[in-house]
Amino acid sequence: MNAQERILARIREALKVPAPKPGSHGHGGHGRDVAPAPVFAFQGRPVQVARSWLPPGGSTPQEHLTRFAAASAELKTDFRCVESESEAHAQLRHIADSEGWARVASHHSPLTDAATAALARPTLFTDGGYVPDELEVCEVGITTCDVLVAQTGSLVVNSRTSGGRALSVLPPHHVVLARKDQLVCDLTDAFQRVEQLHGAHWPSMISLVTGPSRTGDIERILVLGAHGPKKLTVLMW
């Protein structure tokens, strides 16, 4: 018997005696009593029900947008919803000038290719591999995302179509380019969208990013940019 079989055998032995269902405080146990019926029956997927108890994300696209903007403001994400792609590029150039970006990092995709061309600065593309030291000195990482979440102000990047694992977290500024139709109501919708996009062939990493990097480890005082980006900008049109 190998270690896996030994541990599984111990688990099966332990589970021979049933445990009381949750919510039966102080009662049941030892398998003597009849376990009380669960409040929410285990039929199929309890989370589909649980969704209605979570913080709401809004019910119309406009509400989603309002909710995402409010969450972004609280998280200190710089969220800009603009009219067109060219306006997004103009905003990007403005940020680049004011922060003095000398080296930009990005990956190839229709949205990012157009943006990096508009920026016209030395650009490191991470596709197909890169030298970490070269990425570390870039002032910004520009990526696409899979989906944005109104409920939480989050966005999802992955290791295959958002330029790898490090691009969105190593440079001190992370800029995300997104389309309005990528914004969904809540985390349940977001995981469904991610499954539609990648379920047949999962990337090795999928990250739900919510605001710039933060810590409260010193006297519970919020500091941005602990190890990851100090700034997170979302440009959406």
Partner: peptide, 16 residues
């Protein structure tokens, strides 16, 4: 801030 899913080591076609 970050909730990240990992499903494997670097997969074919990934950059890091």
């Amino acid at each position: 801030g970050y909730n990240t899913l990992y499903g494997g080591p670097r997969q074919p076609g990934e950059s890091d």
